[in-house]
Each structure stands twice: as structure tokens, then as C-alpha cells.
């Protein structure tokens, strides 16, 4: 397993994409740091990158990588190694590469110009969302035999979770405005990893607003041990669920 991961990681880290992605992140982080006067504003600007661009790149890259590596995966499958290990080594390599690019890309400017808790949260959210969407991408890839189709599915999932879902939630909130909605919306947020990541950031950036009205309910929820555990658990589930489903299919898939 670790041998497989070692080689998969070695290949992916040396790819041009890894370098470009890291460079892109460094440039984005540097320019945001240069333009913004305080850390709060840096977090704000980076947040859109983390919850929009990072999942998008993760989804597209992971799908492409899976199909580009299909022959290599086949070669591995002909070797005396477990299928699960082949799968996990590929997925983990993608996740590790994406995370590493983020950590280096954003971490470097952070070390240089400082960071606060919201920036650290942001980085964690970015890493988790990368993992979630890499999982989605692998899920789409193992269920289709066509690269274009798989990319289409990955993109659809990305659009669904970062745009369509919130539209539906807003619609629901609007439709049932006369009812107490706090618990329902909270539950709905749990069902979307992008929203979960975003809400964790809101707890840092918009705490004052969240303390007002029913917002206090959200704030209380996320400042309690149970709430944090639940949110973290759900995020973990979002990382594991697509990956597990993809792995189960991978075990039975024909190559």
C-alpha cells in the first residue's frame, strides 16, 4: 500500500500540473495579501477561492488524473497487489498533492505575512473540500468508462453543491419563512460539504452578525462541543462516503 502510494505520489508530485497549481495558489495568495490591508480581508478574499475554485480544480484534476492513469492502474491490477490498495494509493496521491499545493501555496505567504485563526480554518476547509471533490471525481470516474462523461459528472456535482443546492435552500427558506427554520437550515447545511466549510468560515468572519436574531442559534451550535463534533463528523463523512462508494465500485469494476 505504502509502496504503491509512494510511487503514485512521486509521479503526481513531479507532474507539471502540481507545479502549476502550487504556483497559481502562491500567486493568488500573494496578490490577495498585497491588495488587502488586514488579515480579515485576506480571509474574505481567499474564502471565495477556497470554496469555489479549489473544489472545481480538485474535481476536474482528479477525474483527468484517473483516466490518464488508467493504463497504469491496469498494470498495477495485474501485479500481486490488492485492488483496494491500488485504488487508495491513487486517491490518496491526488488528495495529498492537492493539499500539498494548497498548504505550500497559501502557507508560504501566511508564514511570511502572518495568519490568524480564520486563515488556518480556511486552509483546513480547503484541504477537506479538495478531498471531498477528489472523492466525487473518483466516484464519477469508476462509474463511467468515458473521460468526458466523467468530467461532466464531476462538474455537475460541483455546480450542484456550490450553486444549485444553495438556491434550493434559499427557495425552501423563502417558502417556509413563517416557520422556525433554524434547525432545518442547519440540517440542510450538513448535507452539503461546501456549505459546511463556508459556515465554519462564517463562524470566524461574521460572528457579530451571527450573534443577532436566530444567528445566535447557529453560533451556539457551532461553539458547542457537540456542534463542532457533528460538523467535523459530517465533513469526515463527506470525505469518506464518495471515496468508499467509489472504492466498492472499483473492487468490482472491469478494466
Amino acid at each position: 500500500m505504502f509502496k504503491l502510494l509512494k510511487y503514485a505520489l512521486y509521479d503526481i508530485v513531479k507532474s507539471r500540473f502540481a507545479l502549476l497549481y502550487t504556483l497559481f495558489m502562491v500567486l493568488v495568495a500573494i496578490s490577495i495579501y498585497q491588495v488587502s490591508d488586514d488579515l480579515g480581508k485576506v480571509s474574505l478574499s481567499l474564502m471565495n477561492i477556497m470554496i469555489m475554485i479549489v473544489p472545481l480544480i480538485a474535481a476536474v484534476f482528479a477525474t483527468t488524473h484517473f483516466f490518464n492513469n488508467l493504463e497504469f492502474i491496469e498494470l498495477m491490477l495485474a501485479q500481486p497487489v490488492k485492488r483496494i490498495h491500488v485504488f487508495l494509493s491513487q486517491l490518496l496521491a491526488v488528495i495529498l498533492m492537492l493539499s500539498l499545493a494548497l498548504i505550500v501555496g497559501f502557507g508560504l505567504p501566511m508564514v511570511l505575512w502572518g495568519a490568524d485563526s480564520s486563515l488556518i480554518t480556511l486552509l483546513v476547509v480547503g484541504v477537506v473540500l479538495s478531498a471531498v471533490f477528489a472523492g466525487f471525481a473518483f466516484l464519477a470516474s469508476v462509474y463511467t468508462r468515458d473521460k468526458a462523461k466523467a468530467i461532466g459528472i464531476s462538474l455537475s456535482l460541483w455546480i450542484y453543491f456550490s450553486l444549485v443546492y444553495d438556491g434550493l435552500v434559499l427557495y425552501i427558506i423563502y417558502s417556509f419563512a413563517d416557520y422556525p427554520l433554524e434547525k432545518a437550515t442547519l440540517a440542510l447545511m450538513m448535507l452539503n460539504p461546501v456549505d459546511l466549510g463556508r459556515v465554519l468560515m462564517l463562524m470566524q468572519l461574521d460572528i457579530s452578525a451571527l450573534m443577532g436574531y436566530t444567528g445566535a442559534f447557529f453560533q451556539e451550535f457551532f461553539s458547542e462541543f457537540m456542534g463542532v463534533t457533528l460538523a467535523g463528523g459530517m465533513l469526515l463523512l463527506w470525505v469518506l462516503l464518495p471515496a468508499m462508494l467509489a472504492m466498492m465500485k472499483f473492487k468490482k469494476r472491469d478494466f
Binding site: D166, V169, L170, I173, A184, G212, Y213, G215, F218
Partner: peptide, 16 residues
């Protein structure tokens, strides 16, 4: 109007 909707703040859709 609907306080609970604050939870969607800073989402892509709301930005749009």
C-alpha cells in the same frame, strides 16, 4: 425578512 437565511451568506449564489 427571514433571519435564518443568514446561514447562506457568502455562498456563491448569494454573491451572484
Amino acid at each position: 425578512k427571514i433571519p435564518a437565511s443568514v446561514i447562506l451568506w457568502r455562498s456563491f449564489m448569494v454573491n451572484l
